Simulated scan of single mutants.
Amino acid sequence: MISNSETLESVMSRLLDFMSQFSFFHGTFQTNIPFLSLLREVKPSVVESGILDPSICIVIQGNKKLIIGEKSIEYGAGNYISSSIDMPISGQVLKASLEAPYTAIRIIFTSEEIASVVLEANIKPRQENQLREGAFVGNIGLEVLLVFERLLHLSSDSQTAAFLAPTMKREIIYRLLIGEDGGVFYNSMLLHHETSGISKAIHHVKANFDRSITVDQIARIGNMSTSTLHHKFKAVTTLTPIQYQKQLRLQEARRILLGGGVDVTIAAFQVGYESLTQFNREYKRLFGLPPLKDIQTIRAKKT
C-alpha cells in the first residue's frame, strides 16, 4: 500500500540520502547484491563510446545524453534506460556537479528472466510487428522506484539479500511490464527475440566476435536471407553484423589493455585482428585516440 504522501520526488530524495552513505566518490560501485550497482559522476563528461549490457538503469539525479545509431536521446531523473542485448552506444553526462552528482541505480538481467515473468504472471502486453532497437528510455513508476529503494536497503544484509533480492528483481521486471511504458518495454526487450530469429544471430556474433565469420554464416544461424538479416540486425542494434562484431572487438581490446600486462599488438590479435595498422585505425575512429593514449587518458581520470 503506497502512502498518499509518496511521490517520485520524495522517494528519489530518500534514495540520494541513502546512496550518499556508500563509500565511493565517482564511477561504478558494486553492492553486495551481484546484479545491483550504483553509478555516480561529479562533473559533465565528453561523449564516450561503450557497450550497454542487458540491464535497467534508473536515473535518480542529473541528466545524460544517449546516442543510439543516428538517434540522440536526453533523459534524467525519473527516467530509466533498458537494454536486452549488448548494445553499442555513445553517452555523455550533461548535468552533474560535486553538490548534485549524476546518480543512477542499475540492475542486470536476461531476456529469459523477463520471459519467465511474462509467462508466470500471465502478462499479455500489446505486441508490435515492427522491430524496435534493443535499447530505449522510459518513465519509471513510483511502485518500481519503491522496490528499488527496498532492494538498496537490503544490500547491507548479505544473508537476507541472497534470499530476497531475486524476488525483488522479478517484481521490478513485473512492474515495468505493467507500467506506463510496459508495452514498449516488452516489445523492445523481448518480442524480437521470440519472433524474428535475430536473437540467435546476435548471440552468434557475440560468441564468435574474435573469429572470422561471414554474413552468410550469421544468416543461416538466424534462419533468414542475408538481406533480411541486414534489415533486422540493423533495426535492433543500429549496426550491420560486421560493424557490431567490430565494436565488440574494440571494446574487448580496450578492456584488455586497461587490465594491464598486455601490449597493443597482443590485444589486437587476441580480439581477432590480423592487421595492427587496421586495429589502430579503427580503435582511434571509435574512441577518438590511439590505443596507448586512450588508456593513459582513462587511467589519469581515475587517479
Score class of each variant (00 low, 15 high):
Val147Ser: 04
Ile213Ala: 05
Phe35Gly: 07
Pro125Ile: 01
Ala96Glu: 09
Val137Tyr: 06
Ala115Val: 13
Arg281Cys: 12
Ser227Pro: 05
His192Met: 06
Ser275Ile: 13
Ala162Pro: 08
His230Thr: 13
Glu74Cys: 08
Leu38Thr: 11
Leu250Trp: 06
Ile81Glu: 06
Gly78Thr: 00
Val137Asn: 07
Val236His: 03
Leu98Ser: 15
Ile242Tyr: 10
Ser225Met: 02
Glu112Cys: 06
Ile256Arg: 05
Met19Asp: 14
Ser10Glu: 05
Leu257Gln: 03
Tyr80Asp: 00
Gly91Trp: 11
Ile242Thr: 14
Ser275Gly: 15
Ser212Arg: 15
His230Asn: 15
Tyr102Gly: 06
Leu152Cys: 09
Ser90Met: 10
Val11Arg: 00
Ile68Gly: 14
Ala162Gly: 08
His192Glu: 08
Ile60Thr: 10
His204Cys: 03
Phe24Ile: 09
Arg281Thr: 14
Gly222Pro: 01
Ile108Thr: 13
Leu248Gly: 00
Leu146Met: 04
Leu52Glu: 07
Gln251Phe: 04
Ser227Gly: 05
Arg175Lys: 05
Val42Lys: 15
Pro241Val: 02
Ser72Ile: 11
Ile33Arg: 10
Leu36Asp: 10
Lys293Phe: 14
Thr277Val: 15
Lys206His: 06
Arg14Met: 08
Ser188Ala: 09
Ala268Tyr: 13
Ala96Arg: 12
Ser275Gln: 14
Val215Pro: 05
Thr237Gly: 00
Pro88Glu: 03
Gln92Val: 09
Ser84Arg: 01
Arg14Gly: 10
Arg255Leu: 11
Ile105Met: 05
His193Met: 12
Asn208Leu: 02
Met1Tyr: 02
Gly62Val: 06
Ile266Glu: 13
Arg132Leu: 08
Val144Cys: 02
Leu152Trp: 08
Gly288Ile: 04
Lys95Thr: 10
Ser111Phe: 08
Gln159Pro: 08
Gln21Lys: 14
His26Trp: 15
Ile107Phe: 04
Phe233Asn: 04
Val271Asp: 02
Arg249Val: 03
Ile58Gln: 07
Gly91Asp: 09
Pro44Val: 07
Ser225Ala: 02
His192Ile: 05
Ile202His: 00
Thr103Ala: 08
Leu94Asp: 06
Gly62Trp: 07
Lys65Leu: 15
Asn129Gly: 14
Gly69Met: 02
Leu145Asp: 01
Ile198Phe: 04
Ile2Asp: 03
Ile108Asp: 11
Lys232Met: 06
Gln270Gly: 07
Val147Glu: 07
Gly182Val: 00
Leu176Ile: 00
Glu171Val: 03
His153Thr: 11
Gly27Tyr: 08
Thr297Pro: 04
Gly272Asn: 05
Ile172Tyr: 01
Arg40Pro: 15
Ala135Phe: 03
Gln21Glu: 14
Gly138Thr: 01
Ile67Gln: 11
Ser49Tyr: 02
Arg132Asn: 06
Glu113Lys: 07
Ser196His: 08
Ser3Ala: 06
Gly222Met: 01
Leu191Trp: 12
